[in-house]
């Protein structure tokens, strides 16, 4: 597939156009990725409100009734519920790995076996998150497809 990049002056006019004969799963993935790269979230740290890129999020965590988005440097509190984030960003490489965590597969370094059939996920910033047994098949499906 040929890739063309055309420079423009106005940031608000930036857009990705895909010209294809048929919308295949590969095309859908490229579309999802492009959407993810541009997507931003609004979150708060204390009294301050911030806008940050979805692609920078390592994982979302639910703590009691509150939901946080973690980037390498900050933890932003969000207004959304965890299941909403899981649903909205499912096609943007975010996947639930336990009752309280939704991780960004693009920020996942590796997994390793833990106790009782569970796995430990190591993120790109070396943080470790428990992967529940019940979510391992879905993660495998997301990464490995039908293999």
């Amino acid at each position: 597939m040929r890739v063309k990049i055309k420079r423009i002056n106005d940031k608000t006019d930036e857009c990705v156009t895909i010209e294809c004969v048929k919308v295949t799963p590969d095309i859908e993935s490229i579309r999802s990725y492009a959407l993810t790269k541009g997507a931003t979230l609004i979150g708060s740290v204390g009294e301050q409100i911030y806008q940050f890129k979805l692609a920078d999020v390592l994982y979302f965590e639910a703590v009691d009734e509150r939901v946080f988005a973690y980037t390498e440097s900050k933890a932003f509190e969000l207004k959304n519920r965890l299941y909403e984030l899981e649903s909205i960003y499912a096609d943007k490489h975010f996947i639930r790995c336990s009752k309280s965590f939704v991780i960004n597969l693009m920020k996942l370094e590796s997994i390793s076996p833990a106790l009782n059939g569970r796995f430990m996920a190591t993120m790109k910033n070396s943080e470790k998150i428990i992967v529940s047994r019940q979510y391992v098949p879905k993660m495998k499906q997301a990464v490995m497809g039908g293999k």
Binding site: I111, P113, M139, V143, M144, K147
Partner: peptide, 22 residues
């Protein structure tokens, strides 16, 4: 057995990430 599963997953993860990384 789990270690083997993790290795298969990690190998696939690297390919998955490089496929989508611009």
């Amino acid at each position: 057995n789990d270690k083997k599963t993790a290795k298969t997953f990690n190998d696939a993860l690297k390919g998955f990430q490089s496929d989508y990384r611009v």
